[in-house]
Each structure stands twice: as C-alpha cells, then as structure tokens.
Amino acid sequence: MNFDKKIATRQSFGEALLELGKTNPSIVVLDADLSAATKTSIFAKEFPDRFFDMGIAEQDMISTAAGLSTCGKIPFAATFAVFATGRAYDQVRNSVCYPNLNVKIAGTHSGITVGEDGATHQMLEDIALMRGLPNMKVLSPSDDLQTKWAIEEASKINGPVYIRLCRLATPTIYDEKNFEFGKGIQHGEGTDGAVFATGNMVAKALQAKEELEKQGVNIRIVDIHTIKPIDKEIIVKCAKETKKLISIEDHSVIGGLRNSHFRGFDR
C-alpha cells in the first residue's frame, strides 16, 4: 500500500470511462450537472457525441439511460450517490431493475467522508437501497486500480450495476488489477479478528492493522469490493479462523456491508 500516492475513486472512474470509451463504441455517459465533480467530464471532453448532460434531473437521467440501453447502448449514469440512488430510486427500481436493463449507475460522493457539504449530501443508505433491488449488483471499490477494474467489470455484466465511489483521495492499495467479481480479498492471516471493510474504509483498516501489529495484535483485513453478490465462503472461513468478525463501512449499519455479510453472526 502506498500512503503517499493518493487518488479519489471518482477520478479513477473518470479515467476508466475514457479508456472504456476508446475500445467500446457502445459506451455512453450521462450526468446530471455534476460532470466536473463526478469526473465524467474526462469522458465528455474526448467523446462529446456520446455524453449527455441531463441537467439537474436525476429521474429523467436514469430513465433516459434505460431507454438507451434497450437500443444496445451501455449507459453509465453518474451523479452524487444520494441523488442517483435516493432521488431516482423508483426509476432505478421500475425502469432499470425490473426489466433487468443494461444500465450502470455510478454514485460518487458516497458516505460521510463527503465532509463539508453536510448531511444532505452524505449518503449513508445507498448500499441498502441498491442491494435490495432484484437484478442489481453492487460494487464498492477501495482504490484506484480496483475502481478501474470495477468499471470494466460493470461494462461486461449484462444487467444493472451500482458502483459506489468516493470524493476524497485515498491511498493506492493494489499494484495490479487482479480482482475477481464476487470474491473478497484477504490481507494477512491474523487470527485475532477479521475486519471486513469496503470502499474508502479498506485503506483505513489496513492502516489500523499495521498499528495493531506493533501492539502484538494480529488481525486480517478483508476487502469487500463486491457487496452484492456476497462472498459467503470468505465470511465463513474468517469466522471459523478468527472467531471475531468486525466491519467498517462509510455507511449506515442498517442495510450495509455489516447487515448483508454478517447475517446470522450478528449479536
């Protein structure tokens, strides 16, 4: 892990879209007047004919993406997580998930780490909302390369995918794109506890692991980049080997990583 080289996953998202756009002409991108912040502007600059700013109208954006997808396009619709999943929930449910359409929804600025914008913008329920929807898959990448992988992976899945992204720059954890959809990544073999983390909390957990090692406590970290479908195997394995499951997420404990992964273990 490189604590010095930091990059926000929204930036990685923008760069990944650009790369994807170069090789796949079906990729189209929609935004709701936040392209500078969501970084879809990177794609828009290179491919203005495949970028649609829908203005401040998230419901229209999601349904338009649904329409585009029925004609063979692979739309990525991006805005802040709170608007993508909250404001447009009914559109995601009825016009995307019910007909199982090939729409990708990128929610940037998720979690409390949005910071100064305050509570209206700190989306803490998006995982809960999206993972409850039939057909929807949920990705929550932790660093630069993992985000780029997640965007490529989402484009290959034929169906709806929600990708949870963050505003703040976070340390780079991985050197290569060696990820598998639906499979958590275990860091270390410590048996004093297993910390399941997702998104921007993975780097924090890895930092904590180093600190604890100095105090003689050996934990392992599990990076859950795919929230749905869940990786049951790694949960059972870690439960057996450590007897202590801990979760860290920039999300409400209701309906998030903890709720989805520790069912049956929670006390």
Binding site: T64, A66, T70, C71, P75, S95
Partner: peptide, 25 residues
C-alpha cells in the same frame, strides 16, 4: 412490448433515450 411500464411519469424519458440512440446510430 418495447418497455415495461407501470410507475407513471417515466415513459417519456425512456422514449427520449430510444430516440437519442436512434439519432446516434
């Protein structure tokens, strides 16, 4: 049937998406 509908108010946006795709192609 070209689109699943039921929750009112969404059809015109979906039609726009199809029309945009037609223009692009």
């Amino acid at each position: 049937v070209d689109m699943s509908t039921g929750s009112l108010g969404q059809g015109l946006s979906i039609a726009n998406g199809m029309a945009l795709a037609g223009k692009m192609d």
